[in-house]
Amino acid sequence: MLPDDWRRQLVEVIRGAETPDTSWFSGGPHLSPTEQIAIYQEQYRLRLGDALREELPGCLHLWGNEADAVLFAYLNAYPSESWTLDRVHQHLPRFLCETGRDAAWIEMAELECAVSRSFEARDVPPLPPEALTGTPALALSPAVERLRFRFPVHRLRSALLMEEELPSLEEGDYPVILCRPERQVRHLELHPAAWALVDTIGQGGSLAEALAVASRDTDPTWLAGQLGSWFQLFVERRVLVAG
């Protein structure tokens, strides 16, 4: 007889986390119970592995020959919890931190998780340019993700996807946001003051507060000369929406 918690045990067997009790399975004309279970175990690895590879082109590049080992170590540590395959990788940055991996690996995982969130974020109407007159209440589009990297993993990922020459991962300060103009997730690498402005609005700050934060450590004359083009960019790329 199958025990009451047969469901959980069966799932753990398919994941390879428990040894199957072959007396549960009837076998068939062509396959033994062990061979039958092996089909589902193989399909599990193929399906989950493919789902992760699709979401993580940048990570796969950085992991190189270790890619499969890292993928399946992650899946063993953090099995899929959700009904959707789109979230299978959501704990990857945490896993890489816990296992002491390179900072660039962790940042690439954070970027690729952020890309997934941005891709399916809620749609909101674009902000008309005339809305920027005066002191409008502004917010960030739900598709905007704010990221600050030590390594230019965003440049590397874009180059990989565009099949361009790959940049080196030179350590520095890289203020980045993701946005989704025309349904395509894009990154914008910003001046630190522009990133601070966006970040303050993202935290619920007013436009005045955002400008005050952006002006710290920044020459006011230079900043005043930049604001027009920054806001034009933020409207065009659907970074800002009505608050």
Partner: peptide, 17 residues
């Protein structure tokens, strides 16, 4: 079918007893 249990999803269509 069954595709998993709480917090353990295998994303496959497992037959039932």
């Amino acid at each position: 079918c069954m595709t998993g249990v709480s917090r353990r999803q295998i994303h496959d269509l497992l037959p039932l007893p």
